[in-house]
Design a protein around this nucleic acid. Structure first.
Length: 214
DNA sequence: CCCTGATTCGC
DNA sequence: GCGAATCAGG
């Protein structure tokens, strides 16, 4: 993975929006490990981890001795059989994109967090926007009108610079331009009922998600 | 089992 | 620096 400014920006954005690492990975066409690894290296604010952070309660002395994992039996040295090279063709973008597949993953959307939900008065159904970088100009994700879930993490600077559509009410949040750059804005057209995107962008935003299994 | 994020450590 | 392997909790 070559981490260009572009991809890093996208990672940061998606990360700050509370998407799961796997989700981000899918959107970037990389593994979640890559996502987590990079995020960690970038020093991005940690997200609520499923792993209980070693008792922080008193009585415990987490400091001095950490649980330390068992001696790493690093057997990774065996790359094993190689993956069939032929499956490496672009499948997602090759085929025409059915517009109606957003039913692909109805309820399984990752829940952002309580805080986030309360902020989003009318949460657009988490668009399972499977985007192909090659095909479209860096669509980034719905309006980052939310602060990072819990952590008082430094709010992404770009939130301030993003011009919200002048019109009130629902508006298409298809990103135009690169997030973080001055000209960045959202489409703003009238979205389809129940969708975060206008008809035009919804058509390209929704792609079957689960076919990118690597 | 599935999912999640975190960490380690060979490369 | 990168990320697969691994860990570990839900």
């Amino acid at each position: 993975m070559d981490w260009t400014d572009e991809t890093i920006a996208r990672l940061r954005e998606l990360w700050s929006q509370g998407l799961s690492t796997a989700e981000i990975g899918r959107q970037l066409s990389i593994t979640k490990n890559a996502v987590v690894g990079k995020a960690h290296r970038l020093g991005l604010p940690p997200r609520p981890s499923p792993i209980r952070n070693r008792k922080v309660k008193d009585g415990e002395t987490p400091s001095t001795e950490t649980p330390r994992r068992k001696p790493p039996t690093r057997k990774a040295l065996a790359p094993k059989a190689e993956a069939p090279a032929d499956l490496f063709v672009e499948k997602a973008e090759a085929k025409p994109v059915p517009v109606k597949v957003e039913t692909a993953k109805p309820a399984a959307a990752p829940k952002p967090s309580p805080a986030m939900e309360s902020i989003m008065a009318s949460p657009p159904p988490r668009p399972v926007a499977k985007v192909e970088a090659a095909a479209r100009p860096a669509p980034v994700a719905p309006e980052p009108r939310v602060a990072p879930p819990v952590r008082p993490a430094p709010p992404p600077r770009f939130t301030a610079s993003i011009d919200r559509p002048a019109r009130r009410g629902p508006s298409c949040c298809w990103p135009i331009g690169d997030p973080g750059t001055p000209g960045f804005h959202f489409c703003g057209a009238t979205p389809l009922p129940g969708k975060p995107y206008c008809a035009e962008h919804a058509a390209i935003a929704y792609v079957k998600i689960r076919d990118r299994r690597d």
